[in-house]
Amino acid sequence: MANDDPTTTPASALASVQATIARAAALADRKPEAVTLIAISKTKSAAEIAPLLAAGQRVFGENRVQEAQDKWPALRESFPDITLHLVGQLQSNKAEDAVALFDTIHSVDRPSLIAALARAMERQGRRPACFLQVNIGDEAQKGGCPIGDLPALLDAARAADLPIAGLMAVPPAGTEAAPYFALLAKLAGDHGLAGLSMGMSGDYETAVMLGATHVRIGSALFGARA
């Protein structure tokens, strides 16, 4: 749900999202600290991000490598404890830059990208955690590997010694998300993976109740995007 109330401050929006996560976690007999809140700061300037940093948020997500390169190195000089997640699609030719900048990459979805990331990690001696992205709704326009290809992709990632954190997915827009979240959780369990990157501003409460370990929240913190 977007935060469009003009009286809402970034600090109060953050507190509200944190409270919702805690409530959903309690209903599922989970601990709130088991859920990482990623503030999705794509299209937001350093000035727009600063109030959330002041409120204590330290985990942020970006969609594009270039945009992240333009704003995060300077912010990290002031806040060295920032953790940065890449949640958008990644081209193989940007693997070097992604490995250099991000702590976690959520969109690993094909063998060629696995190979490029493995080479970049080897060269840099830096090993960001990786989520394998599943095209959970079988949508032609979306990134992610088909469900049927997941075992082979996971084998390739393990053979390349990628640090695999878990699975990521984005359910089809305008549908009930719960069945897709439950399916992703089952796939992760079947393959012995603990991490589940799922849930955004409109459905993160459901995602937490179904096992999300990472939720990606943009508009509920920053307001609706232009």
Rank of each mutant, 00 (worst) to 15 (best):
L14N: 06
A15I: 00
S16V: 00
Q18E: 14
A22M: 07
A24G: 13
A26M: 05
A34E: 15
V35T: 15
I38M: 14
I40C: 07
S41D: 07
E48I: 02
E48P: 01
I49E: 09
L52V: 04
A54R: 12
V59I: 08
F60T: 03
E62D: 04
E62N: 03
E62G: 01
V65E: 06
A68D: 09
P80K: 11
T83K: 15
L84M: 10
L84N: 06
G88Q: 10
Q89E: 14
Q89P: 11
E96L: 11
E96R: 15
D97W: 07
V99L: 13
F102H: 11
T104C: 15
I105M: 10
P111N: 10
A115E: 15
A115C: 03
A115L: 08
A118S: 15
A120W: 12
M121K: 06
Q124G: 14
G125H: 06
R127M: 03
A129H: 08
C130R: 06
C130L: 04
F131I: 02
L132N: 03
L132C: 02
Q133P: 03
V134P: 03
G137R: 05
E139F: 06
K142L: 04
K142W: 07
I147W: 01
G148K: 13
L153I: 12
A157E: 05
A159E: 14
D161M: 04
A165Q: 12
M168S: 02
P171R: 03
P172N: 04
P172A: 04
P172R: 05
F181Q: 01
A185H: 08
K186A: 14
L187Q: 12
A188F: 11
A188E: 08
D190P: 06
G192I: 05
M200W: 12
D203P: 08
E205M: 00
V208Y: 09
M209E: 15
M209I: 01
L210C: 00
G211V: 06
G211Y: 06
V215R: 02
V215Q: 00
L221H: 03
R225D: 02
